[in-house]
Amino acid sequence: MSTAAPCHAVAHDAVLPSGTLTSGFVLLRDMTAIRIDRLSKRFGDVAAVRDVSLTVERGEVFGFLGPNGAGKSTTINVLLDFVRPTAGDISVLGHDPRREPRAVRERLGILPEGYGLYDRLSARRHLAFAADLEASDDDPAAILERVGLADDADRPVGGFSKGMRQRLALGMALVGDPDLLVLDEPSSGLDPNGTRTMREIVREEAERGATVFFSSHVLDQVEAVCDRVAIMNDGELVAVDSVDALRTATDSASTLVVSVDEVPTDHGLGDLDGVTDVTAGDGSLRVACSDPAIKAAVISRVESAGASVTDIDVEETSLADVFAAYTDESTATEVDA
């Protein structure tokens, strides 16, 4: 489970009045790692991002959650000045990425999505290259050790697996101790070991004082490391909330699936505290509840009703459930489609 500190539990108002932070209040600007003000981005007829406003404070581990195609990567690409906004203002570490790309990139480390590496060059050469670009004296060997590639340092990366490439790209992002670390779907291609390494690094970087902006379509990953979360769907910001509030909202949507030898008719599960809904199926009961910890109580209630429990399973909370928790049913249905 998460060890993320609930230190930013106060729900922020995502929308700031336009221009609040642009008028030269250096102190104020400095407290903000990322400020996105009414950002829209269209590609031809397709609106990839619509009117998104978002502020990430310095030192936060900020989750950016949404299904594939929600507009997360487009938003990140705007932060990088990889694509240019159709409308809206962006400030990264107090600089406009469009007008001052170098100033932004000097203090930013990114693990992008859909990146490429130089297949003929070794992992060590990649890190030395990154250090040259950053004018940093970081030791490639130390970073390779940190991301778990010490044994493959001198092999050309053309022979690397997806997970090894992901570790190397993360290592390159860490060169020069960035003030802001942007990780776009960092777990893709990583095995459980790699995911653990990645989480440890996120925590270490946060402890060092770096801001971490972490995008994912997997709820558990965001919950595990982030303080606050923004949820995006279909180009729009659905919600910005503390991770604790998110957890409360999503737990209410979790479902226990109880397999039984014979479905009891009079189980009385609905009377249990925390059970919101019960549906009987063929050989199983689906128990919607706000707290999966009532599992034991559910089992004993079912057994006392004369059935024996053969299996019990907690259904993973899906993003659709999260959207359902934050929006009305019709929106949630659209997400499923």
Partner: peptide, 8 residues
């Protein structure tokens, strides 16, 4: 994308 994470 990787290059643009550095001051380039």
């Amino acid at each position: 994308r990787v290059l643009f994470g550095h001051p380039v």
